[in-house]
Amino acid sequence: MLEYMTILIIKTLVAFAVSLLIVAYSTWIERKVLGHVQLRHGPRRVGFHGLLQPIADGVKGFFKEELIPDNADKPLFLLAPIISIAAAVTLIVVVPFGGKVHLFGREISLYLTDLDVSVLLVLGISTLGAYGGILGGWSSGNKYGVIGGLRGTAMMISYELSMALAVIAVIMVSGSMSLVDIVNSQAGMWNIVKQPFAFILFLICGLAEINRTPFDMPEAEAELACGFNVEYSAMKFALFFMAEYCHMFVFAALVTTLFLGGWHGPIVDGPHWFFLKSFLIIFFCVWERSTFPRLRYDQIMAFGWKIMLPFGLLNILLTGLWLLVF
């Protein structure tokens, strides 16, 4: 029992440390890649090629002045960033970094838990996390914030559906809702081959769920002056910021797990494949941000309901047909 608990605690600490390190450094990746895409250098001053920049930003966040607007709903204003980051970090619990390995004479699994409803847990908790942004926008008593929050809600509702439909197709092919089982079922052939449409659907809806650029409606700088987080400063803003990048990492991990074979790969299976694929997806997120302009709000809604949703339903129908016939 004691040994089990010790292993579990060590595993939890390592998983969270690694994940948060990735979260911190994906901000660096974002700034660096965006910089080079736009023919700039990106951060260079702190450390080698700006490698210490995320740490400097964190320290800066702690020492800045915290402002709370007079007409803010104070309890909610304080609670919103906490909801955001708590939900984002909770999702790391089900991320399968790797399979079982032998370490110090024991068999250790490189994931924290393997529920038989992991996929649903991810969908559910990420919806709860969206409350953070919405409440943050509403409670700051700022009209830009409210509009940002409203847009966030509408987009969440619209794209969560299509995302779930894409995931259902994967569940149908893999025959399980546990992320570990889904990875194991892809040992021979990755799901991206069996479910190319679901992959595209999931990628687009995922970008909308994590508020990346073609869909960054809740904070559209040019229209809403940063939307839901307009009144937030110092560490509270940093929490929102971290939650966003944490969601991006979890999204990358999910794409890897559901479609790209997780920790499976040529030559030696292992967590290195998981991290390589995840970083490719993170790079993709940054890349498309520097490529696509922001869509208009009504375009996003029309796209979500009139194209993605029927497409997702059709994909499920075809998958069902395919499973029946073969």
């Binding site: 969908l123 559910g124 919806t127 709860l128 969206a130 809600t153 969440m156 969560e160």
Partner: peptide, 10 residues
């Protein structure tokens, strides 16, 4: 969580 706390309350 998904249906009640997530979708409906949203």
């Amino acid at each position: 969580i998904i249906v009640y706390a997530g979708a409906i309350m949203m």
